[in-house]
Simulated assay, not measured.
Amino acid sequence: MTHTIDRNLYTKLLTQTAPKIIENQAEYEKVLTEIEELLFNPNRSIEENALYDLLVMLVEKYETENYPLDVAKPYEILQHLMEARSINDSDLLNIFGSQEIITAIKKGNYPINTFQAQALADYFHVSPHLFL
Rank of each mutant, 00 (worst) to 15 (best):
P68A: 14
L78K: 10
R44S: 13
Q25N: 00
Q99D: 14
I101P: 01
Y67R: 15
N24A: 00
I101W: 13
I5Q: 01
I21H: 02
N113E: 11
F96D: 04
V56R: 03
G108W: 11
V31W: 00
A50E: 12
L55M: 11
P74Y: 05
I46K: 07
R44H: 13
Q16W: 10
F124G: 05
Y28R: 03
E37A: 10
Y62D: 02
L9M: 06
S45W: 12
L38W: 04
S45E: 11
L51R: 08
R85F: 09
L78V: 14
A84D: 06
L54T: 04
E36Q: 11
K30P: 00
I112R: 07
H80L: 14
E23D: 00
A121E: 01
A84M: 10
E65Q: 12
Y52R: 09
T15A: 07
I21K: 03
R7A: 09
P74L: 13
L39W: 06
I95S: 04
E34H: 05
L78S: 11
A117S: 15
N88L: 06
D91I: 03
L51V: 04
P74I: 15
T114S: 14
A18R: 04
P42C: 10
L54H: 05
G108C: 10
L32S: 04
I5S: 01
R7G: 05
I21L: 09
N41S: 04
R85I: 07
D89G: 11
L78G: 03
G108A: 10
E48F: 12
K12S: 12
N66L: 05
F131E: 02
R85V: 07
A26Y: 08
P74K: 02
N49F: 15
E48G: 01
V56Y: 10
L9Q: 07
G97E: 07
E23N: 02
P111V: 15
I46H: 15
S45L: 12
E34I: 06
A121C: 04
F131Y: 13
T33M: 00
A104C: 11
N41V: 08
A121M: 06
A104P: 02
R7V: 06
D89R: 09
Y28V: 00
E47D: 04
E47H: 09
P42H: 15
